[in-house]
């Protein structure tokens, strides 16, 4: 069973619908007891980092997600849901994140390019053999964000994109935790293939 973490941040509709198109029936919940019944979790979200952490904590979901990761269960973070997995963000001052991945979320420096980074950008594969990239051709995916991750260790980078002179982490992974900065559910066939690659793990984990 696939659980989508509903913590009041943004539109979960499109992620839910994308999963349904792939033949899955995910459930939405903000309750960690309910979510603990899932075999895999998705943490979506748009909006500010600080609000996101506040909303997670309010529901006791911060410690729940940390335990989930410790138990090595599959988790997919999307957009803000990816950023929240990192140590901290400079958005609205300093805000601590879930600290599951090493790195800091920073704003794009102003320059001769537009912020937010909004639109289709080309992926560069850093780890082409990672399962999330299985049968994914090199191509473009859809981004909408003003902050990006400065990773501490490059070994979490699966794919990146170049924007504003920065190497923007686009897909990161560490063990059972995978995350995308872009919106796979809005990235046409390429994004849907990545979602499917994540969901295909369900068979491997449901017996645990």
């Amino acid at each position: 069973m696939i659980g989508i973490i509903d913590y009041g941040m943004g539109n979960l509709h499109s992620v839910t619908k994308a999963l349904e198109r792939l033949g899955y029936t995910p459930f939405l919940s903000e309750d960690h007891d309910e979510l603990s019944k899932a075999s895999m979790l998705i943490l979506p979200g748009v909006g500010s980092f600080k609000d996101g952490m506040t909303e997670l904590k309010k529901r006791g979901l911060d410690t729940f997600i940390q335990q989930w990761a410790k138990d090595n269960k599959p988790l997919l973070g999307i957009c803000l849901g990816m950023q929240l997995l990192f140590d901290e963000s400079e958005e609205n001052g300093q805000t601590e994140g879930l600290k599951l991945l090493p790195g800091r979320v920073e704003r794009f420096k102003s320059g001769n390019y537009k912020v937010p980074h909004m639109g289709w950008n080309r992926l560069v594969f850093e780890k082409a053999d990672h399962p999330i990239l299985q049968e994914v051709p090199l191509g473009h995916v859809y981004f909408v964000h003003s902050y990006f991750v400065k990773e501490k260790t490059a070994d979490i980078l699966v794919a990146t994109a170049e924007y504003g002179g920065e190497r923007v982490p686009a897909v990161v992974a560490k063990g059972s935790i995978w995350a995308t900065q872009f919106h796979p559910e809005k990235s046409s066939t390429l994004g849907m293939t990545m979602l499917k690659n994540f969901l295909d793990k369900e068979g491997e984990t449901s017996d645990e």
Binding site: H13, S14, K17, R21, Y142, E185, K186, S187, S188, G191
Partner: peptide
């Protein structure tokens, strides 16, 4: 459309209030 399409989409026409925006965006428009 939001349930079917895997690309972003915009809705225009007849949007006059914040309530109108909420209805359309919550229905799944980007």
């Amino acid at each position: 459309v939001a349930g079917t399409l895997a690309i972003p989409f915009t809705v225009g026409g007849g949007i006059n209030t914040l309530e109108d925006m909420k209805r359309i965006l919550r229905a799944g428009a980007d």
